[in-house]
Amino acid sequence: MNATVPFIVTFLLAIVNATLMDNVVLIRFYGICSFVGVSNKVKPAFSMGVAVAFVTIFASLVCWPLYNFVLVPAGIPFMDTVVYILVIASLVQLVGLVIKKYSPALYKAFGIYLPLITTNCAVLGVAQGNTDSGLSFGLSMAQAIGTSAGFLIIIFLMACIRSRLDAMNVPKAFKGIPIALIVAGIMSIALIGLGGIGS
């Protein structure tokens, strides 16, 4: 939009913003279920993060043209949610099939998380948010990349923290999910503090 700033700068700023200041999990609350459910061990958390990142980027890559070149010309933009969720569900199936064929070891590592990705809000949330707010294709890809990176970083950090929390003497009532949520709240405060960056 702004003619004085080259597109690449806006693109990179948008990625940084979507990763940190606008973090999916801690600020925008997408994908809390898988965040809480899978973040108790480091390795599965990392695999989950990579799988979600992959599907998010591909889903945005498919959904944006689908909305702007098919749904809008056809006069049915209100069908977006139905179409997106179908795209995401079939993408997840497809990713599963491809991984199974070419890398059985990888499939073993995150095959069980694949069905969980369909119901991860981050994937649908990014695709829907991109077209709802009328982003350009470049910026919606920046949004998808930044969101994926943010999810991966936060779920990995959280898993590291939680694996240490297990060894701590936490009050009995706070064990497990409650203390994880409070830790997430404290991490979220730290990210809110980043809001001034780039200003």
Binding site: F29, K172, F174
Partner: peptide
């Protein structure tokens, strides 16, 4: 402003779940 920020959501939820766990225990 903590409680109207996203962080407040996590903290309130965590404390509520802890209270429920305490009652159940």
């Amino acid at each position: 402003k903590i409680f109207s920020n996203p962080a407040g959501g996590f903290i309130v939820m965590g404390i509520l779940l802890a209270i429920i766990a305490a009652v159940v225990n």
